[in-house]
Write a protein that binds this DNA or RNA. Structure first.
Lengths: 140, 140
DNA sequence: ATGCAAAATGTTACTTAGTTGCATTTAATT
DNA sequence: AATTAAATGCAACTAAGTAACATTTTGCAT
């Protein structure tokens, strides 16, 4: 169940401002990650693009959202798990990139694989991603 | 063992030009993926940046190199497996992103995991990546 | 309620990577 | 050597991301 934007902000030590709440609400209701340009367009009357940029920056820094870089190199943002904070991200899911619509979906998968790397490499985190056609594109 | 740049070009139906051979040679000897800006700097006397851009474009299109998007959204390029061509890429390895130096390494791993996705999602390919400290950064 | 300091915002300007169009040059073949 | 399709150089442009600084607003302490 979703926490209110207000609760999210205060629990992460962020001031409550109009655009932050709108962006959190918007990302919470979206079923896929959204880019800064996406949000700029939706909120062009509410805030300047630099403000949106900084909003995303601080939301990410505090662990409210996480960033996924899509296949074109553009950042897209999605709400984090409740347990994430600025110290720790626990978004152990798969990022599915739709080759048709370009959307990126966060999907839960059973478990991330384990593997071994050559001597000297120190792993901090592992990511699994996939490309293909999303559910909404494959039915139409 | 590495094929000569000349052989690579002719086997992929590409004309033999100076900058193409130099770029192939350079990527073959590099132990990590290189970005267009990296190559621009190395070959600024040999070719225009647009030529390098187009060289990378056609090498990728023909399956000579593959592109990895790094953590900042910038494309980096690495030589493909011998078996890759314009139709089929067989680069089933892990991309390791070093958080210290920013380099991206292609590392062989036993096998890519299998998993299931929600109804409707059609997977075309899967990627495994990791972040951490590379061998050369962790020793120094 | 009011004032204050720190934080957030708007504006402008800039950087960097990626991309397109067009005229010129070059590679590969005859 | 001539031909022609492909490759290159140049210039201009787009799009995303970022920085500086003056102004406004939030949250807190009075």
């Amino acid at each position: 169940m979703k926490k209110s934007a207000e609760a999210v902000l205060s629990s992460h030590g962020l001031r409550k401002t109009g655009i932050r709440m709108k962006i959190i609400d918007r990302l919470q209701e979206s079923e896929f990650a959204m880019s800064q340009p996406d949000l700029e367009q939706e909120f062009q009357k509410e805030a300047d693009r630099v403000t949106i940029y900084r909003t995303l920056y601080s939301l990410e820094e505090k662990g409210v959202i996480h960033r996924i870089i899509d296949l074109t190199g553009v950042s897209r943002y999605a709400i984090c798990e409740d347990s994430c904070d600025s110290q720790h991200h626990a978004d152990e899911h798969l990022h599915f990139h739709c080759l048709n619509c370009g959307n990126v979906y966060c999907l839960q998968v059973p478990a991330l694989p384990s593997y071994s790397l050559p001597r000297g490499y120190k792993i901090e985190s592992t990511r699994l991603s996939a490309e293909g056609t999303c559910a909404s594109c494959s039915q139409s």
